[in-house]
Nucleic acid binder design. Structure first.
Lengths: 225, 225
DNA sequence: ATTTTTAGAAATTTTGAGATTCTTCTAGAT
DNA sequence: ATCTAGAAGAATCTCAAAATTTCTAAAAAT
């Protein structure tokens, strides 16, 4: 297993909350999991720290970041900013190929969400849902013609997931999600840029405090770049 | 010299173009510069690769990213997006303290730019100008109440600088810059959010191809989050 | 009872050598 | 002349141990 594989594996474990928030990450311990030396794990942890998925302090090692409602709100704001911008650009440059891809991604996600909605226990579906949800949101911005924007978005998305991996399993949430995703799809296929921005905002703003939600909605009305 | 110091030093060297674009970065060579072992340099290079300031390929080491007009355009777009958003938030939350800080930062920058404008050779001022320019743009977004937005901005800014460190030395550029920075300051102190967005856009859009500039201006008129 | 000191334990950082992989160069075949 | 195979050389990657720093908790001092 190479350094890059270990990096990818740790990244996945961090965003699926395989570790506890605040937990110490010791290279000497983690090397057991991967059958390699501590230095190799250390290199991977350094990369993850630059990305913000791991906290690093000199001479006192690595830790999983603590849970923070403030951070979650910040990340939500940035997701709204980047996804709204990226989706509008996709509407302009994407063409039919993008519309087809988006429809497909939505269909897949919608299918899984309906199964969760019907099932008594959503736990076994969470892995599938996770992938489909990411795929849908990535497809939204996939035709924006900016690799930098996409890279920034996935980075924010990962930190968002790390902060927010629970409470996502109740009936009401899934029910709302189905409606939200559908509203975004319809607005985007219709080419209605402002409505698309609005629906992306509405979808993500549920992760903000009620007070912040109003503030953010106000901002939505102002003009941007 | 600790790993963190080496990381910071290499970061600075990379964004001031101390290395050639495309140059190979050998840990075995760089260790000479810092009097440490190759592994320590390697760890720093890994961190920089995650940040996008260094390209990494398994089994073929590290390289300084090539110059790319496309990448510069993408980074410019993201700077406009983040700085416009951050500045509008600062206008709302900053209060008098922020206005004072912004005025001070502008005064400092303006002073240096006027000296450059008067001088025959701008080269000796570039270091000062670099710091003052970054300080001004960071102060714009400093009261946005989002450490995540600031972190994202500095990351984009560094990559922008790495891509764009020349051609910044001619008369016309500095002359325009003085006007641009002043226009942003006035609009921000006036609390005029839309005008501030517009001026930030105008200031940064000079790094876009003429065609892209129009496109970007259109986008500026649409509403955002 | 509270604070400070200190010695031992534990964790982190750094190092340099060995193993592995890639690149370049050369000789022979097409 | 071009292409391929193989060997020599160079760079990269991995690892375990040494050096450094921090942490813990018991003893001493206030």
């Amino acid at each position: 297993m190479s350094e890059t594989d270990i990096y990818a594996s740790l990244q996945h474990r961090l965003i699926t909350n395989d570790f506890e928030h605040g937990e110490k990450l010791r290279a000497e311990q983690l090397k057991q999991d991967y059958g390699c030396s501590a230095s190799t794990v250390r290199e991977a942890l350094f990369r993850l720290s630059t990305e913000g998925l791991v906290d690093f302090q000199e001479q006192r090692g690595f830790r999983v970041p603590l849970k923070s409602p403030i951070l979650l709100a910040e990340l939500t704001h940035l997701r709204i900013l980047l996804e709204a911008e990226g989706t509008v650009l996709s509407i302009r440059h994407g063409g039919v190929a993008w519309e087809a891809k988006l429809t497909a991604a939505h269909h897949q996600l919608s299918h899984i969400e309906k199964r969760i909605h019907a099932a008594s226990d959503s736990a076994p579906f969470m892995g599938l849902w996770f992938n489909a949800e990411l795929e849908f949101h990535q497809t939204l911005i996939s035709a924006c013609n900016s690799d930098s924007l996409k890279a920034m978005h996935i980075q924010i998305y990962r930190k968002f997931r790390q902060q927010h991996m629970d409470a996502d399993r109740n009936f009401e949430f899934i029910s709302m999600n189905i409606q939200h995703h559908h509203a975004i799809l319809v607005a985007a296929l219709d080419g209605n840029e402002n409505l698309t921005r609005q629906k992306i905002h509405d979808h993500l703003a549920r992760h903000l405090e009620p007070a912040k939600r109003v503030q953010s909605a106000e901002l939505a009305k102002s003009s941007s770049i």
